[in-house]
Design a protein around this nucleic acid. Structure first.
Lengths: 201, 201, 201, 201
DNA sequence: AATGAATGAGTTTTCATTCAT
DNA sequence: GATGAATGAAAACTCATTCAT
């Protein structure tokens, strides 16, 4: 079983270095210091070890959601904390997220994986939105799931553009803009500082 | 030159049918009714003909922007029209958009192409946002370019999820949600009907 | 006919630049400013235009022989003049000689051409050797043709090593060594200066 | 490792049969009874296996030099033995020598190999010439290395013309002529029989 | 005579996968 | 479980040659 772990670790290194398509199984086994044949003791093909890499890194990539901020009740503050956590996590795992994106467009199983992971996030946010609506704090004319899909996608797309495509932008400004737009979109009556105030922080 | 066009047309068919990676040059030349050698009269490799396909379809994919709706001054109506146009265009060219997405994650030149196309959209919307701010109709605390990046990305991600990943949803509801969130996000004082009213349309 | 000449000239340029094997007919026609099809008006294939290049350069490569030095009767001086002329000619046409050597090892017709050219030289020298033997000035125990073959080959090999392989050596020293060995080999009673004297020249 | 040897052996057969250029890798693997892929386990390309063939045949092609004839001190006899050994070796390996000549004119690395092998021979003969000069037995006005380059080249060219180009000639006569010219060239006071005597042998 | 787009046969090369040890 | 040499299918690409204009 130590060999299996070595292979998964090696695969992550090689995938991050060469991308999914250019990664050769022989590179992975070389990196894991085992023979090519041994690969097949644990996996059937590249897709399978990729799935294993993703599985192994699942915990690193789970994003804390809005409801996980304890002892705070200001919706805007919770949203900000949630967005910040998401963006930081994305930044930390940018290489892996890029890989997930790349392989999603190649392998339907990975596409499914990405969708499933996305939905965790969407549903969590949908629950939070619904809660705010029920408490009269958010635009009641929005379908919570629909709105969550759009807003969650907004953040993940933004993170992709920023950390994978390097479309730039100061991190605090990203958090601020994402949060303000998110709050505005839900018509949350926030008391976020204005742009200039934020910049002076 | 007729041959070149035949190749580009054939390539689009094959790429849409098999995806970029599985498309064989020999399939493309067969579809174009010419020999494999002829391919190299016009292109050097698969990347090059893919770029040609993208170039040829550029016009189909250019999305009308917010400012192009004539004779209407209700910002919400303009935004709705703009979003509807974008989503319809995306739906029409879903296969091609999927391809663009796939190849972007493989070929840096195509990644650059996608980015460039995205910026056309971002900048157009940024100008519209700035205009609304100056007229006192939109949240002045947002950086127009930043906000546009986020909101434009929101729409394109949403379109991708809907039309490429088939994440479902009634088209009119998509337009409604996107528009309402967009308006809300900018704090545009819209007079969009409520959700229920929309549904009854 | 001007086109034909342009093709032959172009071929020489391309052959000397790229070598026989790497020269593409399309490079030759491009250099000659004519279309690929036109090539076949004048030649059937690469071998044929190569032969034409060689034919066109025949005069440049004809080496004056021993008997062509007028008004001098010192055999050693004649030999020296002959060797000098040969080596100078070889040096001038080194690229072409290299080409001839290369193609000889590929195309039997060119091998034949090289052999034929070599024999002109061998026979001329054989006659001169025989003449010296009859006048009692050279070793009578040598078969004139055999000796000429060996000695002529010696010079041409030497020239090849020096000017094609760049095996180095001061030109005057090459002439001196070749001449002295040639005279010695035929037991010509020469009065060539010693090595040191030569060097001081 | 048995496979590697099989490939090298097969390559020699195919190269000698078809020449370097016409030899297909697939012919070599077929001759070696292995698959095309196996070729790449041991070699990267045709050049590399050619080098291996040459390396494998190095010992066959090493020519005994002048100093290796034991118990004889007649310089002319030593030279004769040396020339005979060289020519016999060349005759035995004519196909390989032809190949070496052909590839030398194509591949710079092989050109370098040929040069290096030639120098072994040149230097050995240069030492022998110097020794004879010091003992007062050879023309002191010759630079030993220069003279060796010329005379060594003479023999190898002669061997090439005879055994590769089949320029003919009785073997014993070749040895006689080469030896007599070599001795004459160095002004060695030989006591070789005259031409007629040799022929009667 | 000149053109140059079209042709297509033919070889190299890669690398996931197998299996005897 | 581990090994790693052997496998071989599959595709890209080149360029001499043709021929309708």
């Amino acid at each position: 079983m130590r060999t299996r772990q070595a292979l998964v670790d090696a695969a992550r290194v090689i995938f991050e270095r060469d991308g999914y398509l250019d990664a050769r199984l022989s590179d992975i086994t070389a990196e894991a210091n085992c023979s090519t044949g041994t690969f097949y003791t644990y996996f059937n093909d590249k897709e399978e070890i990729f799935a294993a890499v993703m599985e192994a890194t699942k915990n690193e990539m789970l994003h804390p959601g809005m409801e996980h901020v304890d002892g705070v009740d200001d919706p805007a503050a919770i949203i900000e904390a949630s967005n910040r956590a998401y963006l930081e996590s994305y930044r930390r795992n940018a290489k892996l997220m890029q890989l997930l994106e790349q392989v999603s467009n190649i392998d339907p199983q990975v596409r499914e994986l990405r969708r499933a992971r996305g939905w965790v996030f969407v549903e969590r946010n949908a629950r939070a939105i619904k809660d705010l609506q029920e408490r009269g704090l958010a635009d009641p004319d929005l379908d919570p799931v629909m709105a969550s899909r759009v807003l969650s996608g907004m953040i993940s797309r933004f993170a992709y553009a920023t950390f994978v495509l390097n479309d730039g932008g100061d991190f605090e400004e990203l958090v601020y803009t994402a949060t303000r737009l998110w709050c505005n979109a839900l018509r949350i009556d926030h008391h976020l500082p204005g742009r200039d105030a934020m910049r002076k922080k």
